[in-house]
Simulated assay, not measured.
Amino acid sequence: MHRRTAVSATTLTVLSLILVLAAVWGWNALFPDPADDGPANPAFVAPTCTPSTVEGRRVRTRDITVSVYNAGNRSGQAGRVLTALESRGFRPGALGNAPEGTDVARAQVWAASEEDPAAQLLARHLGRRTPIVVRDGIGPGLTVMVGNNWNQLARAPRAIKVEPDEETCA
Rank of each mutant, 00 (worst) to 15 (best):
A98R: 02
Q108E: 15
S113L: 12
G56S: 11
E86W: 10
R60W: 06
D103P: 04
R62Q: 11
R88H: 10
R74C: 00
L82W: 06
A71E: 05
G96A: 06
V54Q: 05
V68W: 09
L85Y: 01
V109A: 08
T102I: 14
E115K: 14
G89E: 13
N97V: 14
A112E: 07
V81T: 10
C49M: 10
E115Q: 13
G101D: 03
Q77V: 01
T102L: 02
E115A: 13
P51Q: 06
P92H: 08
V104G: 00
N97C: 08
G96Q: 06
P99W: 01
G56C: 11
T61Q: 05
E100G: 10
R58A: 11
L82A: 03
G96S: 04
I64D: 01
Q77C: 02
R58N: 15
T50C: 02
T83F: 03
V104F: 04
T53G: 10
S75I: 06
R58T: 15
T53W: 08
C49E: 10
R88P: 04
N70E: 04
E115S: 09
V104A: 00
N73P: 06
G72M: 04
G56F: 10
F90G: 02
A94Q: 10
R88W: 05
A71F: 07
T50F: 09
E100K: 14
P117Q: 06
A98E: 04
A105S: 15
V109Q: 08
T83M: 02
R62K: 10
V54T: 15
V54R: 04
V68E: 03
G76K: 05
P117S: 07
N97Y: 15
R106E: 15
R88I: 05
W110M: 04
P92C: 06
N97S: 14
Q77G: 02
D116T: 04
A94N: 14
G72P: 11
R57T: 14
D116A: 01
A98V: 06
E55F: 07
T83C: 00
A105R: 14
S113A: 15
C49N: 12
S87Q: 12
Y69H: 08
G76L: 02
C49V: 06
G93D: 06
G56E: 14
A107M: 10
V66I: 11
A111E: 05
R57K: 08
G56M: 11
T102W: 00
A78H: 08
R57V: 13
G101Q: 01
S52E: 15
R57I: 12
N70C: 04
F90P: 00
E100C: 04
A78C: 11
V66Y: 06
T102G: 03
L82H: 03
A105C: 09
E86R: 12
A71T: 10
T61R: 13
T83W: 03
